[in-house]
């Protein structure tokens, strides 16, 4: 699965990376993982309701791509969105408080897990309808092109969404109009509970842009350095006005589709094997230790720091008040 494509793809190359950058990746991926674990805990305690889709296992994708972004670049994704928000610098407190439906949340408690936005960080949601974010993301890129800047839009969607018709309508127009959009397919192997081989006629989703003349690459999405290297190629092409670019990130989600997923469609062994052999955070941890860039104690300090941030976010999310009842009637129209 992951290894097959990674070996075949052009993404085996790795950029030179500094100690600082490796540490940054470690820290950012760990923040997402610990944040998500905490969210799962709060869900179990009944503090988070409804749907809650965790990003655990896929951290290298957003962290690697954010390393290629510059100010003004935009991002948009599906309902599995907590990792994207943390990676682009949104405040963990505001994200967690939105999960608990509190006034201190990014959407003041009115959006929930699937619907958060930050104009300041150019994060355009958080969309609950599978694949709807694909044309919306191309629309963000349309605006940048219209306004004449060289920003790009990272448009994330899953292997399940890749079967939606609007994706191909969007590929057509994005290529036709040379829109600066990076289509990031996060292929975590399962569309909810349906394995890719049971839902998708051809395995190589990154080749689906070929019909529209869009370049595509399969990337080892468990290797943050490979992700960054591929991201740099895609972003450079977009900024140079060459139109859209497809990156199929071969990744894996350790947890269920949502919190209510009984996970009958795959074996415990399969999940455990990925965790043991391909974990993105362990990978960077090893690079840091074996390369002599950090000691165990250094990393323990990072772990402690992240734990504190996540605990602070959880505390804020528990104590932030529920929205005022008057908020029911606000923000319907401007």
């Amino acid at each position: 699965m992951v290894s097959r494509k990674a070996a075949a793809g052009a993404s085996a190359d790795r950029p030179n990376v500094s100690r600082e950058e490796l540490l940054k990746f470690y820290r950012e991926m760990l923040l997402i993982r610990r944040f998500e674990e905490k969210a799962g805990q709060l869900y179990g305690m009944g503090l988070i309701g409804g749907f809650c889709h965790l990003y655990i296992g896929q951290e290298a994708v957003v962290v690697g791509l954010e390393a290629t972004a510059k100010e003004g670049d935009k991002r948009i994704t599906s309902y599995r969105d907590h990792g994207h928000m943390l990676a682009c610098g949104m405040d963990p407190k505001g994200v967690m408080a939105e999960l608990t439906g509190r006034a201190g949340g990014y959407s003041r408690g009115k959006g929930g897990s699937m619907h958060m936005f930050s104009k300041e960080k150019h994060f355009y949601g958080g969309h609950g309808i599978v694949a709807a974010q694909v044309p919306l993301g191309a629309g963000l890129a349309f605006a940048d092109k219209y306004l004449g800047n060289d920003n790009v839009s990272f448009t994330y969607f899953g292997d399940g969404a890749a079967n939606q018709g609007q994706v191909y309508e969007t590929f057509n127009m994005a290529a036709l109009w040379s829109l600066p959009v990076v289509f990031v397919i996060e292929n975590n192997q399962y569309a909810m509970g349906t394995a890719q081989r049971r839902s998708t006629s051809s395995a190589d989703i990154y080749t689906r842009g070929a019909a529209f003349g869009i370049k595509g690459e399969a990337v080892d999405g468990m290797d943050v350095l490979a992700v960054k290297a591929a991201g740099q190629r895609a972003v450079a092409a977009c900024r140079a006005g060459k139109g859209p670019y497809i990156l199929e990130m071969m990744t894996y989600r350790y947890r269920g589709h949502s919190m209510s997923d009984p996970a009958k469609y795959r074996s415990r062994e399969e999940v455990q094997k990925m965790r043991d052999e391909r974990d993105a955070i362990e990978h960077v941890r090893e690079l840091l230790l074996t390369g002599g860039h950090a000691t165990d104690d250094d990393l323990k300090l990072v772990d402690r720091d992240i734990k504190a941030i996540v605990n602070e976010a959880a505390e804020f999310a528990k104590t932030s008040p529920e929205p005022d009842l008057s908020a029911l009637w606000t923000d319907i129209t401007v």
Binding site: A138, G139, L140, T170
Partner: peptide
């Protein structure tokens, strides 16, 4: 092109962006 679903999404996305 004759693709209402897609171009409506693109137009809405561009409105999000100003």
């Amino acid at each position: 092109p004759i693709t209402e679903h897609g171009f409506a999404g693109i137009a809405v996305g561009s409105a999000f962006a100003g």
